[in-house]
């Protein structure tokens, strides 16, 4: 999938032979992918402690959230600095539905995703008609304002104010022989696989090409007859929905939502994860998710402020030296190897 994307990105036409070769390599790649998923599904529940499993679950959830952000920022070129807000709305929607309406957890997920998509549409609509930095500005403001809205007295009956809402993790269905952590890990893994596949297919479809056309040259795209405001707003809604779903899963995994876990830092974490993982790459968010969960833990052992400083330095480092993020590593190395024999 990487090769195909980059050829489109650099504007070099795909030769017919290449296409044939790709279709021949397809079953192989599918097998590899299945193998990877099987390994990811079997190994951690067998060998990881329940805390490690929890962290892996969180990393997958972050990966889904960052994928949502990547769809709008990486593939459609619209910068959002406030995806933490959609994550928060998804988490709160699920927590409220589970605690106030006693809905089963799996019923709340699609509803939360839809709520977030609608919310994203509402936020995206005024800003995306305009292009430029307006979306970044609006979403940044949204991210800053979100904790205050969640603490607001008028909605305290629903959101629990500063205290937040407690829910409890679902038990594994009987007969599977899994504990709750293992079950949740597998559920999140299944969601991640499904969403990454869907995103992959979508981004390689006609709509995906339209998104990238708008990113690369919006005026040309408009001249080709695309309704760019409409595509951008819908892309943003989709992206908000995916990030919201991740938020909903996080509420279930953490069993608790509170305003201060959804500060502007969360949005910035997603953004840093996006850049570090790889902007405009489908596998990039996986790296981003791992980064977002494990790097702060490592850094926190130095000082409370250290994660932030290290985050900032790493972000700037990547922007200067590795703008394609972790996902760009193999290509970088391949390019280096190719250059060497020619001298």
């Amino acid at each position: 999938m990487d090769a195909g994307r980059d050829r489109i990105g650099t504007g070099i036409a795909l030769p017919a032979a290449g296409a044939a070769e790709r279709s021949a390599a397809r079953p192989l790649r599918l097998l590899g992918l299945l193998g990877l998923v099987a390994v990811a599904a079997v190994l951690p529940p067998l060998f990881a402690s329940s805390y490690q499993l929890f962290q892996l679950t969180l990393a997958l959830i972050f990966a889904i959230a960052i994928l949502g952000l990547n769809i709008v920022t990486g593939f459609n070129g619209q910068i959002s600095l406030g995806h933490g807000a959609f994550y928060a709305v998804g988490a709160y929607a699920t927590a409220i539905m589970m605690s106030h309406f006693d809905l089963p957890w799996w019923e709340t997920l699609p509803v939360s995703a839809l709520i977030c998509a609608a919310f994203g549409f509402g936020i995206g609509f005024p800003a995306l008609r305009l292009g430029g930095l307006y979306l970044a500005l609006t979403t940044f403001s949204l991210a800053v304002a979100v904790p205050q809205i969640l603490k607001y007295k008028g909605v305290e009956d629903w959101t629990g104010g500063v205290q937040g809402v407690f829910i409890s993790k679902p038990d594994a269905p009987e007969g599977l022989g899994l504990d709750a952590d293992q079950f949740l890990y597998l559920v999140v893994l299944a969601f991640a696989v499904a969403i990454f596949l869907l995103a992959h297919n979508l981004l390689h479809s006609r709509i995906g090409r339209a998104m990238r056309a708008i990113r690369d040259h919006s005026i040309a795209a408009e001249a080709m007859g695309m309704d760019i405001a409409r595509i951008k707003t819908r892309t943003f809604a989709l992206s908000a929905g995916i990030t919201g779903l991740a938020g909903a899963l996080s509420a279930i995994a953490i069993e608790f939502v509170a305003p201060d876990s959804f500060s502007v830092e969360l949005s910035i974490t997603l953004f840093v994860g996006l850049v570090v993982g790889g902007v405009g790459s489908i596998v990039g968010p996986l790296f981003g998710g791992v980064f977002a969960v494990f790097v702060p833990n490592l850094a926190e052992s130095i000082s409370r402020a250290a994660p932030g400083v290290i985050y900032g330095v790493i972000l700037i480092f990547f922007l200067y030296l590795l703008p394609q993020g972790f996902a760009g590593f193999p290509q970088r190395i391949r390019a280096l190897l190719r250059r060497r024999p020619e001298g």
Binding site: T73, G77, I79, L81, L133, A136, I268, F271, V272, V275, V279, A305, A306, P307, G308, V309, Y311, G312, V313, L315, I316, L319, P323
Partner: peptide, 18 residues
């Protein structure tokens, strides 16, 4: 533009936590 916004966010993180 994304790289520039990224640098600003990086600066924000460094300043705030420093």
């Amino acid at each position: 533009v994304l790289a520039n916004v990224g640098v600003f966010i990086g600066l924000l993180l460094v300043f705030r936590n420093a």
